[in-house]
């Protein structure tokens, strides 16, 4: 294990130090650890190259160069390998470390641990005095957030099974453009390839794993893309007028456009776009809320209550 790590580190050092592309035969001749027949060294090198790439290290390959006969050359460009440390102030690095620490014991903690490790090699302890006392925060996010972020960054297609509102799962293929977190849930949005329409998906409705394609750059993110984060179609907004018991219904009151005070009940007006959600919210408040209008909403609530009574006798 150590011998192999040693060879790989030596390969990285050599490819990083060279100013020109170096060929396989040069690598076999000069880099410690390549031994045996030519064929076994070839196999060793192919595996090493794949392993370094899997670890996220980019190896440049030269085109066929007449100077090297038909041998290709390899090198690692410093700008692809190293962090641009000059671009950030000590305080910014400290903020980045603080940001990585928010994930302690959470879904991306192994990732942020590695980031922290790198950041701690950028500069010594920053002037923490300038960073205000901050209450500790612990973050959580869906396990496959990393696939979502990788998908957007490299523009790779993702595929997953998604649960619809009737409890059926179907396979979706999506060009992810954006991700966000709202009212307690993580979402991602982009082009649903089979439907040829932009859609938004809630992460916890993905059933099982989310698979990410190997091929990068397979789509473009429209420059003017804005995710629909309100989930509302403004054109169908309706107004509900409700009687809400005094001292109750904080949630409804926070949504209200107007509140008229009364003795036992206040009259509250709320704009809504989803009738389903409005009915749920009214039912939740039981006898603290009574619908005045519209008639359709009132009837739906009454119907639901009748069914509930009937089901629970």
């Amino acid at each position: 294990m150590s011998r192999k790590s040693e060879r790989l580190v030596n390969l990285v050092i050599a490819l990083l130090a060279t100013k020109r592309y170096i060929t396989k035969s040069e690598i076999f001749r000069t880099i410690e650890g390549y031994e045996g027949s030519n064929e076994s060294m070839e196999r060793m090198f192919e595996r090493d190259k794949d392993e370094l790439r899997a670890l996220g290290i980019e190896i440049e390959v030269s085109g066929l160069d007449p100077l090297f006969d038909d041998e290709v050359g390899y090198r690692i460009l410093a700008e692809n390998f190293e962090m641009d440390r000059k671009g950030y102030s000590a305080n910014e690095i400290a903020y980045m470390s603080l940001a990585a620490q928010l994930w302690k014991d959470a879904s991306l903690s192994d990732v942020s641990q590695k980031a922290l490790r790198k950041l701690s090699a950028v500069s010594g302890p920053a002037d923490i005095a300038e960073i205000p006392a901050f209450a500790p925060v612990i973050l959580t996010a869906p396990l496959f957030l990393r696939e979502i972020i990788d998908g957007i960054t490299d523009r790779r297609v993702v595929e997953f099974k998604y649960l619809d509102s009737e409890m059926k799962t179907n396979l979706r293929k999506v060009h992810v453009y954006s991700y966000f977190s709202l009212r307690g849930f993580w979402y991602f949005s982009g082009l649903d390839v089979d439907k040829s329409e932009n859609r938004t998906f809630r992460c916890d409705r993905v059933v099982g794993e989310l698979a990410i394609a190997k091929k990068a750059n397979s789509y473009e993110i429209p420059a003017d893309y804005e995710p629909n984060t309100t989930f509302s179609d403004i054109s169908v907004s309706s107004q509900a007028v409700l009687r809400v018991r005094v001292g109750r219904g904080s949630q409804l009151r926070s949504l209200a456009s107007t509140i008229e005070s009364g003795e036992e009940f206040d009259v509250v007006q709320i704009a809504y776009s989803s009738e389903e959600e409005m009915i749920s919210l009214i039912l939740w408040h039981l006898d603290d809320v009574c619908v005045i209008r519209p008639e359709t909403l009132k009837n739906s609530v009454v119907q639901a209550l009748k069914k509930l009574v009937k089901a629970h006798v």
Partner: peptide, 15 residues
């Protein structure tokens, strides 16, 4: 230090 990977960068940006 090595460059941050995209998911490391993602974790930092969200943070």
């Amino acid at each position: 230090p090595r460059k941050l990977t995209s998911i490391e960068m993602g974790a930092i940006i969200i943070g």
